[in-house]
């Protein structure tokens, strides 16, 4: 049972990790990073590491996303999409 939960979470996590690289909008990519953090939290709980899970929940899904989103705001990439050539900041 636990194995199947882990399998679903791992698939979800790897899919959002790929989405981080493929999504054109930077805001969506940052949100996908936070999804990866949440998946990691579940996996840490399954690995019997509640302390690490707590840290990852506070940092990976919360603080890190906020820092990255704030950086987007300050870089002016908030609404602009990456057009695949990497010069979406013009």
């Amino acid at each position: 049972m636990t194995t199947w939960v882990a399998l679903v979470v791992v698939v979800l996590m790897l899919a959002s990790a790929l989405a981080v690289l493929l999504l054109r909008s930077f805001v969506a990519a940052v949100a996908a990073t936070a999804v990866v953090g949440l998946g990691l939290t579940v996996l840490f709980v399954l690995m019997r590491a509640p302390d690490v899970a707590m840290t990852e929940a506070a940092v990976g899904a919360g603080l890190s996303g906020v820092i990255l989103a704030l950086a987007l705001r300050r870089l002016g990439l908030w609404r602009i999409e990456d057009n695949g050539r990497g010069d979406g900041d013009a």
Partner: peptide, 30 residues
């Protein structure tokens, strides 16, 4: 085994992202 696949997948996707990204912010995400 499942978690090992997940960890390796994250490492490889991160390394790949750092290699092929043209944008510094996406490199940071990777």
């Amino acid at each position: 085994g499942v978690v090992l696949i997940g960890a390796l997948g994250l490492i490889v996707i991160g390394a790949l992202g750092m290699a092929i990204s043209n944008h510094l912010f996406r490199m940071l995400l990777a």
